[in-house]
Structures are given as C-alpha cells and as structure tokens.
Design a protein around this nucleic acid. Structure first.
Lengths: 345, 345
DNA sequence: CTGTTAGCGCTTTCAC
DNA sequence: GTGAAAGCGCTAACAG
C-alpha cells in the first residue's frame, strides 16, 4: 500500500542471478542468445521476487507506447458501452492498454482536442460514435498517430459503422409496406455534440419520395437522444391536427420514450400508432419494440483490429467497413387501422 | 501518421532557446526559479515547435505514474457506464489518466488477477461493481497501490456504495404498506461473476419477518441481471398455484423484463400485480416503474475523490461512504385488488 | 537565476 | 553466450 514503491530493478535481478543486466533483459524477454541454463536461473530469481519490468522504462527505451486512446462522448448509454467492450477486449488480448477519455460535454470535447491529453501517450486513437470536426482533425494531426473511427461514420479516417441510410430505409420501408401513408420521424440530435446530417434522416425523405408521398415538415421533429426527449418529441407529434399513423425513431431509446407518450395519450400500440426504432437495444425486446438491429460490439472489435493492423504497419484491405443491419419485427408495428387516404381526404 | 515519431526533446528546445535543459524543464513546468524573460523564451520556442514533454520520461524520472486503473465487469450496462463516467470525470480534472480494464467473463477476471496487467502502470485501482474475492485480494496486494471499491460494497477496501439492505427495505416496506401480503422476489445474481449474498435479499426476509408474514421459498427466484432473465424469472413466479400480488426485483432491468412477462400473461400492472425495482435506471421512468433510486455517477465521483485523497497521502475521513437511496413511486405499484387474506385463507 | 551532472529502469549495440 | 556501456527524455540535486 506504500505509494513509494521500492520495486526491484532489472539490475537487482541480474546481480542476484549472477549475470549482467543485458543478459537478464534477454532472458526475461525471451530474446534469443541466452543459454537455457542462464535463462532459467534468471527466470527463477525473477519469479522468486515476483519481479516485473517497469513498463515505463521499457517504453522509454524502445520508444513504443503499447497504449491506445479511446475517446467517447458517452459511456452510460448502451451503444457506447457495448462498443468500448468490444474495443477493450481486442486490445487486451493484444496486450495493449486502453486509455479512456470521456468527453461528455461540448466543453470536455473542446478541452480534449485543445489539450490533447493523450499526446505522446498512445500509439493510436479510436473515436467512438461521433464525427470529428474539421478543426478537431487538425488538432488530432498533432498526435501523429493512427486514428480510427468506430460507429460514427467518417470519410477521413478508417472506420467501421453501419449504413445509416440503409438502416433508415429498412425502417421506413417496413412501415410503408404495412400500408402507412402518414409517417412521422423523430430525428435524434446530440445537443452536447455537434451533429451532422444523418443518413437516417435522408432515408425518410427518400422513402417518402419513392412512394410518391408528400413530405410534411410538421411530421418531422428533433429530439436529443434519450427516452424523455423522445417522449416530448412524440407529444409534439400527437398534438398535430392529423397525427401520424406510424413513427420512425432514430433510436430505440427515443422510441421507448415515444411509446410512453402514446400510451399516456390513451392510444394503443400498434393499433392506433405503429413505431419502429433503430439499434435493437436490450430494452427493445423487453418492450416488444420493432427495430433495426445493428451489431455494436463487433463494430468495436473490428475497429480495434483495424488499429492493430495499422500498428503492425499493414495496409488496411479496406478503409471502411460497413456492418449490416437487420429488421426485427416485434409487436409495435402493424398496418394502419383505417385507410389513411380517408384521413387525409 | 508516422508511428515512428521524430519528436523534439527537451534538449532540443533548450538548445533552441539558448538555455540549459534544466532551465527549460523548469520553465515548462512552471517551476519557480526562472526569470520571466527566460521562461517566456522557452515557452515561445516550445510553442513554436508545438513541443510536449514525454510523459514516459517524466514518469521514469520522478517515479510517479499519474495513472489509475478502473476495473469493471460490464460497460454496456447503465450502472457501470454511469459509474465510469463519474470516475473518469474526476480523474481527468485531476490530470490523471484512466487505464480501463474490462473483465466481462470469469475467464477475463481470472486472467486479470493472474497477470495483473496493470502492474507498475498505475498508482491506484478502482474496482467497479463487484466484490473482490479473498484470493484476488492477495494478488492485488502485489500491485502495492491503493485500492478503492465503487458500487460493490467491500469491507476490506475503502469504498462508496449504497446500503443494499436499506434499499431493499424501502422497496419491501412500500409494498407492505400498500397492503401486499404475498410478495415475490427476483434476486439478481451474476453468472459471470462470483456473487455474494446481498443485503437486498436479507431485506426481503427481514421485512416479511417484521410483518409477521411467512417466508414462502417458492416466492423467491434468482435471475442473472438483465431483462430477458428477469422475464423468465417472472414466468416462474406466474406459474405458481398462488402467484404473488407484488414483486420486488433487485434491479430495474430485471423488473422491466418481469413486466413483459406479466403483460404477456394477460395481467395488468399494477391492478393484478405490482412491481418495484432498484436503481432508477433511465428506462424506469419510461415504463413508469416504481423504483428505489440510487445516485450512480456521484458514487463514481466520490470513489475517484477518495483515490485522489489517498494519492496525496491524506487519511480518509471515512473509509466507507454510503450514499442514500430514495423511493420513487410511479405507476407499477398499487394496493392489491382483493384482500390478500382471502387468498391465503 | 541558471547550468552541470547524475540518475530513473530498461534495451541495445558492440566487443569479448 | 555474455557483459560493458551508451542512451531513451526528463527531473532533481548541486554548484555557480
């Protein structure tokens, strides 16, 4: 418990084993050029004193850090936690340490890119779930290391993500196929982070256009990620003269919030209103929410593997990996009750 | 992007500024004993080349790591993510780096304590949300650093957590006050981690005893944390000859799963069955779940602050901080419909 | 105030 | 095969 650690040094071990420190080093590192005998002797002594090398010194001496930074704007939300789990697992197995940087607020984020606390501490960085801005990229350059994006698509860096447009279309096409003609959308935005126009939004417009349906602006509302916000957004939709018969939410968390609003308004799901989300968050199956599933943990794993490859000096076979999404039909979607044309006419 | 970073060294800056490296060091570190002029000159040169010190070298030289390890068995679950957010925030503000170790499976956990990857890399470690076992404690000793437990009560290490017994009693007393006499409990266990008997369970027994109610073993079921598991456990409870009129779940996630089972069984909440959870997970308010709220993020912050204090050599005013919990009544609990005495008689 | 000189603990030539 | 010695980049005495 003594913070001032009186650790043994390589030199100690070497002396105890009766060899030079160079030999001790070689023995401990499994380097070749040491007789089996000598090596064993060193190993024994090391074990006896439960000696471990000082990672700091090793790094100083060989110039490699063996560490990577993971930067995430959230940790308590399932998507991000799951992503980080995937990342950590891969790096741990590769013997690389993960330095975690949580940039929850805009302020945190600014501070991170301004101060670059990871400078000279990591061999690479993975940004999780948010698009890096122009100015931030310039700062990141200073790190002079490889950057990979996970879950927040990015043209500039190698990345792994889903096809947001496609996911959105899967959701919309499902609703359209069921016969819905008046569909609302709850766009997710992140108040604490700069948001870029998402394929999830354009999917809505394109789908309507292809179905020759009008784009009614009042059917589109924005809400920060999160259930409560989704609930509020839904309230707005419900207060319209002609509420939608179905709602497409950008995330399950938002969708679940919306469901509460619908129920509180005395309406039934899916009889009166259908709703579909994106993610297949664990809660989705618990509330029987129809959704578009995306594999999150594997996105994290893939991103970490990309970093590993980059670190080994390999060239990535593909700078961009898109993992596929899948419609999961549960019980929050059904055909509209009455012919929507009657409503609008 | 070149992994072989041709960084400038302190010596370079010193030469460029026309001073000795010691002076340069002092200037950069804001140490006193440097004339404003000289300091400015050094600072200018450093800025010009956007120089930053090598943390590795600094640490080697001064023997402090400035890093702490956070060990968590989950990251994708709200409780853990929230906890880590709190921890990270405090350490970041203190200029300390967080090394993240995710020990999701029993195997990971064993490997962590066996290999102690954090050895000589951190000044302290925070274990999040799980009790450290005897044997593991012995291994941890080898790290020779301060250990603090967050969210998983622990008699051995300084820690911050809630009073599980009290939380359980708040839940049980609420149900009893409403008039329930036949109350089921869904105990949470962690299959992937060794579980210790929880105050949340004894609270159930004590509450019944105090109310002079019988302890019916079939009313107690165990389930791993998680909604699906909670749902299954609830199914078991529903299949009893005389199902409970109320259920006390050890966590909200489990409770939400249970709610699905209840609804699928065609029963209404709270008319037919009441249910209460623990946590006040974000989803709780979305499904109007009555629960016992615990402040999670602040537990993380407090734990980190304890570490900070320990690192400064201070003695902790209290080795154990208990944060309080609070009953949040929403709409999943109500008095039982019929006099329970009629059922049991 | 500032420069010189040792290390910090390990890896890595380069001789032996 | 093995050891001696020179760093890796910085900090911390110790002189000036």
């Amino acid at each position: 418990m003594d913070p001032t650690r009186p650790q043994m040094t390589l030199a100690d071990i070497a002396r105890l084993a009766g060899v030079g420190s160079a030999t001790a080093s070689r023995a401990l590192n499994n380097d070749k050029g040491v007789s089996a005998q000598t090596r064993q002797r060193v190993l024994n002594v090391a074990a006896q004193y439960s000696y471990v090398v000082s990672p700091e010194a090793v790094r100083l001496a060989k110039g490699k850090l063996g560490r990577v930074a993971v930067v995430a704007p959230h940790l308590s939300r399932w998507f991000f936690g799951e992503m980080v789990e995937g990342i950590e697992t891969v790096f741990r197995d590769a013997g690389i340490d993960v330095l975690l940087y949580f940039v929850g607020s805009l302020e945190d984020r600014r501070a991170f890119f301004e101060k670059l606390p990871a400078r000279r501490k990591v061999d690479a960085v993975i940004v999780v779930g948010f698009p890096v801005e122009e100015a931030e990229r310039a700062r990141l350059e200073l790190l002079n290391v490889n950057i990979v994006a996970a879950g927040g698509q990015h043209e500039v860096y190698p990345n792994v993500c889903i096809d947001d447009y496609r996911a959105g279309r899967q959701a919309m096409d499902h609703l359209l196929f069921l016969g819905h003609r008046r569909i609302g959308m709850i766009e997710a935005v992140d108040l604490d982070q700069p948001t870029e126009p998402s394929g999830r939004s354009s999917a809505y417009r394109e789908a309507l256009k292809e179905s020759k349906l009008p784009l009614d602006p009042e059917l589109v509302v924005s809400a920060p990620w999160g259930g409560e916000q989704g609930a509020q957004a839904m309230d707005a939709l419900l207060s319209l003269k002609t509420p939608p018969t179905a709602v497409y939410a950008h995330s399950d968390e938002v969708a679940v919030g919306a469901m509460r609003s619908i129920r509180r308004a005395g309406l039934r799901i899916p009889e009166d209103i259908s709703i579909v989300g994106i993610d297949d968050h664990p809660v989705a199956s618990l509330v029987d929410l129809t959704t578009i599933r995306q594999p999150v943990r594997s996105q994290g794993e893939l991103a970490a593997q990309m970093v590993l490859a980059l670190l080994e000096g390999k060239t990535l076979p593909e700078r961009e990996i898109t993992v596929s999404t899948q419609l999961i039909v549960r019980s929050t979607t059904a055909p509209p009750r009455q012919d929507p044309s009657q409503i609008s006419s």
